[in-house]
């Protein structure tokens, strides 16, 4: 009951806030408001709390501001369904499962090539020949091509965290699909889900380019990203969104936690499939578009699945060795 009273007061205070906010608020409105503040000291206190939040939001950093505007104040852009990507990712995982850790090396024309991959539910720590440390996420594949003038890494699938040994004469470049990330003295995380790529910088700076950008846009199209920033590349619109992320969030997966900030459910599921012993499938394409923010323990995926129907309109069912997520509105598939 007391809770409801508090909420009521909060709503009344917020209502006053919008009324006083208008530059043309009348003298009568002012008088009525003053009378309200004098009725009970808690009235003005509540109003001040509303003020405090509005002020805090007004001084938000540019990136958070942009991400909120993008998430709520713009009409949703038509999106390509995510299901094909998720399906492709699951196929890749089926092929990888059983394969443990594999690396082979090829020396050709002064270029050292290596392929690294990891099994489902197994993260690997790797030291490259230049001393760069790589933490490779589960079910991830990466190739390295090192030559005298360049160090090139290609993330084929999954996630990797790089702590780069900086070398001016040999730039360190990570390719993930359409996206190229160039280190400028850095530690950063790259997650590739199909053609969707997110880059989280935990230290220093990187330069990110869309390798498919039109000629003439060459240098100016590069996005310089600093520590604490998260860039998401959406292949559907070929657009990059910048947000913020803490180093702890960016590398949480190394401690068995996957962090997602505003990711489509299809991307979440594709990444969980890198850790889940049972493949997860989204049966209805629309479900994959639902946006998810939160962290998931990779050693407790089942309990996350149990809780999922409470936040999304979906049903979780087991079919053989698979887990199926289907739209709660549709009839069961059997």
């Amino acid at each position: 009951m007391a809770k409801n009273r508090q909420d009521d007061m909060l709503h009344i205070a917020a209502d006053w806030w919008v009324r006083l906010r208008a530059p043309d608020a009348s003298a009568d409105t002012m008088d009525q408001w003053l009378a309200w503040t004098q009725e009970d000291i808690r009235h003005l206190e509540t109003f001040e709390r509303v003020n405090e939040l509005a002020s805090r939001l007004d001084s938000l950093d540019t990136l958070s501001r942009q991400s909120l505007i993008k998430a709520f104040a713009q009409p949703p852009a038509p999106r390509r369904p995510w299901l094909p990507l998720a399906a492709a990712a699951s196929v890749a995982i089926v092929m990888l499962s059983g394969a443990m850790y594999l690396a082979w090396s090829n020396r050709e024309g002064g270029v050292h090539t290596r392929v690294y991959n990891s099994a489902i539910a197994q993260n690997r720590n790797i030291t490259l020949s230049d001393g760069t440390q790589v933490a490779l996420g589960a079910a991830s594949t990466m190739t390295t091509q090192f030559s005298q003038g360049q160090r090139r890494v290609d993330l084929k699938n999954g996630e990797a965290f790089f702590q780069v040994v900086h070398d001016h004469s040999r730039p360190f470049v990570v390719r993930a699909g359409d996206i190229s990330v160039r280190d400028i003295g850095t530690a950063f995380d790259v997650r590739r889900t199909g053609e969707r790529v997110t880059i989280a910088v935990t230290q220093g700076r990187v330069e990110i380019t869309d390798v498919n950008q039109k000629p003439g846009e060459t240098k100016s199209g590069a996005l310089e990203v600093t520590a604490g920033q998260l860039v998401s590349y959406d292949p559907g619109t070929s657009s990059m969104t910048v947000g913020s992320i803490t180093p702890e969030q960016a590398t949480a997966w190394r401690d068995d936690r996957l962090e997602f900030i505003d990711e489509p459910l299809s991307v979440v599921i594709a990444n969980l499939n890198r850790y889940s012993t049972r493949p997860l499938h989204i049966a209805d394409g629309d479900l994959g578009k639902l946006s998810y923010t939160g962290s998931i323990r990779t050693d407790a995926i089942d309990s996350w699945l149990d809780a999922l129907p409470q936040v999304f309109p979906l049903r979780v069912s087991n079919e053989g060795n698979q887990v199926i997520l289907s739209d709660v509105e549709r009839a069961p598939r059997r």
């Binding site: 001084s59 540019t62 923010t293």
Partner: peptide, 23 residues
């Protein structure tokens, strides 16, 4: 482009995430 503006965090990332959830 790319000369990123100085960023000062008036609100922690978790707080922004909380607002996002609330919205």
């Amino acid at each position: 482009v790319g000369e990123s503006t100085p960023v000062h965090h008036a609100m922690a990332v978790e707080q922004v995430a909380g607002i996002r959830r609330a919205l």
